[in-house]
Amino acid sequence: MYGDTSIQKPIKIAEPTSEEQARLEELFQQKIDDNIKIEPQEWMPDAYRKTLVRQMSQHAHSEVIGMQPEGNWLTRAPSLRRKVILLAKIQDEGGHGLYIYAAAETLGTSRAEMIEQLQSGKAKYSSIFNYPALTWADMGTIGWLVDGAAITNQVALSRGSYGPYSRAMIRICKEESFHQRQGYELLLTLSKGTKEQKEMLQESVNRFWWPSLMMFGPNDADSPHSAQSLKWKIKKKSNDQLRQEFIDATVPQAEFLGITLPDPDLKWNEERGHYDYGEIDWEEFGNVIKGNGPCNKQRIAAHVKAHEDGAWVREAAAAYAEKQQNKDVA
């Protein structure tokens, strides 16, 4: 599960067109302020619906595309124990994508539409999955850092205002607690292994550290739409808050692994009670979002291929179901 909210574009909030509209919006905000969940079919501002559909579909796409980098290592897992763990983890990601697509469908957008938007490039997914998984250590690093960042996001999302999304997130957070642990355990094994294994570990963390921090999205100052999402409790914490939480939790874990994190500016700030960290390369982030990451094209191409290869299968099953229904009627 990857609750990445980094790729949202700001949405223009429509001015209330009438007194009625204003009254509805006021009631709506009152519910949100009172922590009453919003359920499907209830009145909601258009922009709330659009923001949610966008965020949820991006989140679901991230889960599904996120199967690819790890899926690449399924057939090469170095032990049977690791192989079944990885299979179960990737399967969870597919399941989590499915839960969120289903939750998003309650807002009136079909899964087919969402998938079309993903494939046409109209909808985005988390930038992290446009980085390649090159070594076995990456299977651990993805679990530890990428799932770790995602969990930080998702715990916040599970308290969000939209009922179906929040319920899906609760289920997902429960299931996902094993994802980060298996990744960290994998890395711990490498850290106690041979020189080559230790190098593999450090090299992998070097590649994934910064992209993991980017998963939280732009700095708050550059994230103008965040304020509205916070007000609507679609988001519960700002990008920078979540990023800081993640870094504070992760640094001691890195020390325990006996590795360094590739940021010379990373150090404890007694006064703030938090770790200070260096500047993220936002140009790289922007480029990966725009489609220039190392794997953007391959990821979408693989998704399109699976979808197209499966078209005759989906048609066959639909045709069979129709025949059966006609038989029942006759």
Binding site: V64, M67, Q68, G71, L74, T75, K83, L87, A88, I90, Q91, G94, G95, G97, L98, Y101, A302, H303, K305, A306, D309, G310, A311, V313, R314
Partner: peptide, 17 residues
């Protein structure tokens, strides 16, 4: 397991896995 991210729908992906 080679069907990972290649099945006709997510539901079928889950089934094969």
């Amino acid at each position: 397991s080679e069907w990972c991210f290649r099945a006709p729908s997510i539901e079928m992906e889950m089934a094969l896995m």
